[in-house]
């Protein structure tokens, strides 16, 4: 049966464990002084603080060590775990079960059972086939091409100057440009020519045409 504890005791011990009297706030110090004197607080605080610094721990004699280890050797009652309860066995069993399931399930996954005409015949036909898939991949290619721009060097006449159109007379192609013969054929020597040339009346052929 636990004793009923006083809340004041709990508050005071928290202060005693955490603060010196000089570190108490005015409220805390007045609260403390309602329950104990300043000297009492300081003494109890020093009991806690100085005892906490007492690290003198005696060493256990080696005879106790030997006795404990001897008992350990004699009473090693580490339970022997049956193989079916060990983790390794459980893992191996799980792997075996998984392998069996794979072996049973997977071959039928992609197989269609086609019953033959007779009841006794069952044909297994795999549905696996190769599928070619063509993909058209469109992409934009930018080609940079140098463009040559021709600029006319013809000087432009100022707009205020009126150009006089040139009148071109249409010539008659059947009429010679000039009445003068282009070649003087009067002095053509036909002595070294053949009879054919001599018989031709070249003077008539080559003579200028009179309009």
């Amino acid at each position: 049966m636990e004793k009923v504890f006083d809340q004041n005791e709990n508050n005071l011990i928290e202060l005693l464990e955490s603060k010196d009297f000089s570190q108490l706030s005015p409220d805390e110090s007045s609260y403390v002084l309602e329950h104990m004197s300043k000297e009492d607080y300081i003494l109890r605080r020093s009991v806690i603080v100085e005892t906490a610094q007492d690290n003198d721990t005696p060493s256990l004699p080696s005879s106790i060590d030997k006795a404990v280890f001897a008992y350990l050797e004699e009473n090693d009652d580490t339970p022997i775990i049956p193989i079916w309860q060990s983790k390794g066995f459980a893992m191996m069993l799980s792997a075996a079960v998984a392998a069996i399931l794979v072996w049973i399930i997977l071959p039928f996954k992609d197989v269609e059972i086609i019953k033959g005409e007779t009841k006794e015949t069952t044909v297994y036909q795999t549905k696996i086939d190769t599928v070619f898939q063509e993909k058209l991949k469109l992409d934009t290619i930018v080609v940079e091409k140098p463009q040559i721009v021709y600029v006319s060097n013809t000087p432009k006449a100022p707009q205020n100057q009126m150009c006089t159109p040139i009148e071109i007379k249409q010539s008659n192609p059947s009429v010679a440009q000039s009445s003068q013969p282009a070649i003087d054929i009067s002095n053509i020597d036909l002595s070294n020519k053949g009879s054919s040339a001599k018989s031709d009346n070249n003077s008539l052929v080559l003579s200028p045409v009179n309009p």
Binding site: E2, K3, F5, D6, E9, N10, L12, I13, E14, L16, E17, D40, L43, R44, V47, I48
Partner: peptide
């Protein structure tokens, strides 16, 4: 709470003994 209460009385008794 019981631990704190016992601590309070322990320090009280020890201080009283030292005095």
């Amino acid at each position: 709470g019981t631990v704190k209460s016992r601590m309070y009385h322990a320090t009280q008794n020890l201080a009283s003994q030292i005095r």
